[in-house]
Each structure stands twice: as structure tokens, then as C-alpha cells.
Amino acid sequence: MKDFNYHSAKDSKEASKLASSSSAFLAGGMTTIPSMKLGLATYKDLIDIKNIKKLSGIKVSGKSVTIGAATKHVEVSNSKDVKKAIPSLSSLAEGIGDPQVRNRGTIGGSIANNDPSADYPSACIALNATIHTNERKIEAAKFFKGMFETALKKGELIEAIEFQIPEKSSYQKHPNPASRYAIVGVYVAKHKGDVNVAVTGAKSCVYNDKEMSKALAGNFSSSSIDGMDLDSSEMNSDMHASADFRASLVVTQAKKAVDAC
């Protein structure tokens, strides 16, 4: 790891002012620190955002759950309010990595990083989330741009994520047995009037499967997607799972999610 400057920002304004093309925000550090240790990333400045009070905490209103960007996974998984409003979101958080990761990793870090196999991006898509930054509000559907790519501009700081409370929802993941990231994770959410089937792990970026969403909007039952043959040509293929296996898992996990709703 190369030398770097450590800053602790007291508010969003200071954090974004300190940001440059060779800086990173330091939230849980669960991605940033290992990549620096392995020499995959080098930064001149790390801007710690954990001490910005405004960025932590969970608020529930009648329609939505708003989670501060620096809120740790363990806080989401343990939150009684989240468990009551969107139980699938708390169980998603409970299934991330391992206790060490959950005790440090944050929701903001996770979605800013937009790892193709991360869990939270699927929750954002399925639950029609709004990403609140220090500059603007971004709809989830426009936030996740591609592999490790988001709509965030340099120095733009996520402050909170606002999830719409669905009628029913469930997240089902087939974890990578080693890292426990998603090989395929499917988040099904039934809202008034429509259904989202957000898929992570399968392609280079999280997406909403239109075909399954449509079928389920017509008839919200796993039988309506049973046997669906998905196109695997754009799916990831690696030593843990081929594209064909992933395509099959997307349907299987979606069915499981619908059954669990």
C-alpha cells in the first residue's frame, strides 16, 4: 500500500471539497482498503465520511424507508423498523459477506461501488429507490450505469437512499460459495400496479428483468415464470458459474422469491 493522506470530513460540504481525481471516500473501507493493499488502486487522499452524523441512521415514513449512506449493513439487518417495513431488505443485509464485512461495510459504499455481484443494487432497482446526493436526487433506474459505474460525478457524495415500501417483496440469492457475493441474486417486489424483478450477479450490471416483471404483473405466481428460458448471451461466465447456469438460476431464484413473498 502506498502512502496516502487521511482526512476526516465533518460534513458533506467538506467531504466533497476535499475530493479530487486521486481521492476516494472512506466509508466501511471494505472495498477500498483491500484494493489498495493489493495495489489495484492508489489514492493520494482518503476522505473519511463516517464521522458525518447526517449520513448515518434509518428513517421510516408511511411510504418509504430512508437509510443514511454511511449506515452499516449490520445496522440495517438489525433494525426493527426495517424488519417491519421491508423485511426482505433487512434479510438482504444479513446475507452480505460475513460478520466482519457487515460490521464495517456501508450501504452507500456498496451502491457507489456498484459491484456486478453486490446485493444492494438489486434492492435499489426493485424498491424504486431514490439516491439522495449532496447535489441532487437520482432514480435508481438511472443510477447504475454499468460494471462498477454509476451516475455519480467526481466528488459527489451519496447522503441517503430512499426505498419505496412495496406490498410484498423477497430477495433470494445463490451465493458464491467462497466470497458469498451473489452469483445470482433476484429481488422481487410487488408494488401497487407493477412488479420489479431486479437481478444482480448475472450480467455486468444490475437490471430489471422486463419479461419476468411483465409476466408477474399479470399473474403474481411462480407458475407464470416457471420454465422461462432466458437469453444467456449477455450473462457472466466465470469459474464459479457459466452463463447457462446463471440464466437458469435467475429463473429459479425469481420463483423462490415469488413463493417467499
Binding site: A178, S179, Y181, M239, H240
Partner: peptide, 11 residues
Amino acid sequence: LMTGSYMDYTM
């Protein structure tokens, strides 16, 4: 070595 860390080697 493709399985050179715990991200890929399943302990």
C-alpha cells in the same frame, strides 16, 4: 492460480 484468495477459494 485462479483461486488465489478467499474470494475464489472456498474455505
